[in-house]
């Protein structure tokens, strides 16, 4: 399977459509519905609790077209959050004490108001996570961003699916590994990833294929040893993330004939301990146009917050949000399999 140069949407592929994806993932009659399985946790239905993270998807445009991308991001995607929508997010932060804002995309740096948004969030003294793909930091017009993010003490979380070139380039495109290492060296020079600097650089591993991630701790040791010995670079933590059976990864699963066995693997690996700590319990996800979701995956499946919670930030109401019932479908098994999976890595 070749690395793409444009999104599935650009090619008019059926799985670029959320409803087509849902038809597949909700049509596996042999598998128990996620809600039934979640009952094993012993908490009844899945509900949110304290909101600790506002995850904001500031746009679907990206300089990369990764094979597994759940956003179907790419250079051709034009969905970009406006300054007005960002301002509503700022207003909500002012009204609440949500401590962390997690900026994602696409490549969030490609939003023309990225710096303004970070500035405004930091004025409110909130922690900012930037999900950077690293290679954007080497592109012309973006090379000042590492320093900007250091000055603003942003935490950087970057996908690096393996500590070697082969797997990384296979998933993310030719040359991505070398460019990423170059960007990591720049970040290390500024203090990112170095003990005691206060500048955090975390990496994300996700499997390059239809299998579950290994133990986060063991793999983090391998990454640290190999990346330092081979490239002289350092980082703080490794997060292992399971690929969700949606968007491009769903397309890969179907095309490669792995879909049924992968779903079965996710269901068989359901772990109640991991399910207890799923990220939707303490996260709200804001779409590029201000729509509200329980997580970034639901956002891509166009499954808005429901069950009495508002579906757009213009109607934001913390009372209706903090104990809302989470909207689920069969893809949710991706977050509860094995050691669990979240934007902060394993959950069990």
């Amino acid at each position: 399977m070749e690395v793409r140069h444009k999104s599935m949407k650009a090619f008019g592929e059926s799985l670029a459509n959320a409803n087509e994806q849902l038809k597949i993932i909700n049509n596996e009659s042999n598998l128990p519905h996620f809600d039934e399985k979640y009952e094993l946790v012993g908490e009844g239905e899945l509900h949110a609790s304290n909101i600790e993270i506002m995850q904001v998807n500031v746009g679907k445009m990206c300089n990369q077209v990764c094979k597994h991308c759940h956003v179907d991001a790419g250079p051709d995607r034009k969905e970009i959050m406006t300054k007005e929508t960002m301002q509503i997010c700022i207003d909500i932060l002012k009204q609440t004490d949500i401590p962390t804002v997690d900026l994602t995309g696409g490549a969030p740096e490609l939003n023309p108001n990225f710096k303004w948004f970070v500035d405004e969030i930091k004025k409110l003294d909130r922690h900012v996570i930037v999900r950077s793909n690293l290679t954007i930091l080497k592109e012309s017009g973006f090379q000042d961003l590492p320093k900007f993010m250091a000055n603003h003490k942003c935490e950087i979380v970057s996908s690096l699916p393996f500590y070697k070139k082969t797997f990384t380039d296979k998933q993310r495109g030719d040359g991505v590994f070398d460019k990423s290492i170059s960007a990591i060296k720049n970040l290390n020079e500024l203090g990112f990833g170095k003990e005691g600097s206060g500048l955090i650089l975390n990496f994300v591993y996700n499997p390059v294929g239809a299998f579950l991630p290994p133990s986060q701790e063991g793999l983090e040791n391998d990454y640290k040893r190999e990346l330092f010995n081979t490239h002289g670079v350092v980082f703080n933590n490794l997060y292992t993330i399971t690929n969700m059976p949606i968007s491009r990864f769903l397309d890969y699963l179907v095309q490669s004939g792995n879909y049924e066995s992968y779903m079965q693997k996710l269901v068989d690996s359901f772990n109640p301990s991991a399910a207890t700590n799923v990220m939707c319990k303490f996260t709200i996800s804001v779409g590029w146009d201000g729509q509200l979701f329980d997580c970034d995956f639901n956002q891509m499946l166009e499954m808005n917050m429901d069950h009495g919670a508002p579906d757009h930030i213009k109607d934001f109401d913390m009372k209706k949000i903090e104990n809302r019932r989470i909207v689920t479908a069969q893809h949710c098994y991706g977050c509860t399999a094995g050691a669990g999976s979240s934007c902060g890595g394993a959950t069990a």
Binding site: F162, K164, F167, G209, F211, L212, P214, G218, D222
Partner: peptide
Amino acid sequence: TQESLSKGADLE
């Protein structure tokens, strides 16, 4: 093969 991949091994 599945187990090796799941434990963090690669093709090499």
